[in-house]
């Protein structure tokens, strides 16, 4: 027997279509209204003309764009290095915190102390301590402020990432560990082949989210002196007494973050979908 949609069904479809058109129209209308309102509020403000010349001046933007882009290249390289090393450090510390047994006590204590203190310390202070404090020791072979600043960022973010990894490790059900151990796998093998792969998959969205935050915070390296995008913008601001370079740097940072944010959203969505699909 062939199926023919009933009157009832056709009626439903038609009704839903009418409703859909109606909501699209309403959305367009309200967007237009809000947009107009915002434009009027900003451009109609008494100081708008002055703000426009000191923050959105096109010639100034074009003049400093090359320097800021140069600086941004430093930020990008810093991001890759810092993200990689902070993840490695975080993973290591998280695993150390799960170790059992009396021999591992000092290791556990150090790992725990580290995550507690560096999550509480403001990144700016860590950068100052590293970039200005360590050279002050006047030891042989102290690396440049760039390396010291990067180390500060890695160590601070490592503490956050360690907690994310630890949450992932703890979210793996004990029955998985029991299954692995019952097959004769040792503690290390169980961690490596059963617990960590599941843990990392599960915390991929928050890890990426922290990487987005890191992407902005690598800009704090400018406090230590290296000329990154923010420092380059600051130089421009000081030379021309115009804030436009900051806006340029801000927009560039935002553009830099977009792909990472998109990937994060995609991974999060995929993880959520997989969790709903399974059982």
């Amino acid at each position: 027997m062939t199926y023919a949609p009933s009157e009832r069904r056709l009626d439903r479809i038609a009704y839903r279509r009418r409703q859909a058109i109606r909501s699209v129209l309403l959305a367009a209308l309200s967007t237009a209204a809000v947009g107009t309102l915002l434009t009027v509020a900003v451009t109609g403000a008494p100081g708008w003309e002055r703000v426009k010349t000191s923050f959105f001046d096109f010639p100034t933007a074009r003049k400093y764009l090359p320097q800021i882009l140069d600086g941004l290249w430093l930020n990008l390289r810093l991001l890759v290095v810092c993200a990689t090393l902070a993840m490695a450090l975080g993973l290591l510390v998280a695993v150390l915190r799960t170790l059992r047994g009396p021999v591992a006590f000092p290791v556990r204590a150090i790992a725990t102390g580290y995550t507690y203190s560096f999550r509480g310390l403001p990144l700016i202070i860590v950068i100052y301590l590293f970039a200005f404090g360590i050279p002050g020791l006047r030891l042989q072979g102290i690396p440049s402020v760039l390396v010291l600043g990067a180390a500060a960022i890695i160590i601070t973010y490592g503490a956050y990432l360690a907690e994310v990894f630890r949450a992932g490790i703890e979210s793996v059900h004990p029955s998985q560990i029991a299954a692995a151990r019952s097959l004769g796998l040792g503690y290390r093998q169980t961690m490596r082949h059963v617990v960590l792969p599941q843990a990392v998959r599960r915390v991929a969205p928050p890890l990426l989210n922290d990487t987005v935050a890191l992407q902005k915070d690598v800009g704090l390296i400018s406090l230590a002196g290296p000329i990154d995008a923010i420092r380059a913008a600051q130089i421009g601001v000081a030379q021309d007494a115009n804030f436009t370079p900051y806006v340029v740097a801000g927009v560039l940072f935002m553009l830099l973050a977009l792909p990472l944010i998109a990937v994060t959203d995609w991974v999060t969505l995929r993880a959520a979908r997989r969790q709903n699909a399974g059982s």
Partner: peptide
């Protein structure tokens, strides 16, 4: 444990 196999109620496959 290498000499003993254990199968669980909830399978516990990886």
């Amino acid at each position: 444990r290498q000499k003993i196999g254990l199968v669980f109620q909830s399978y516990n496959l990886f």
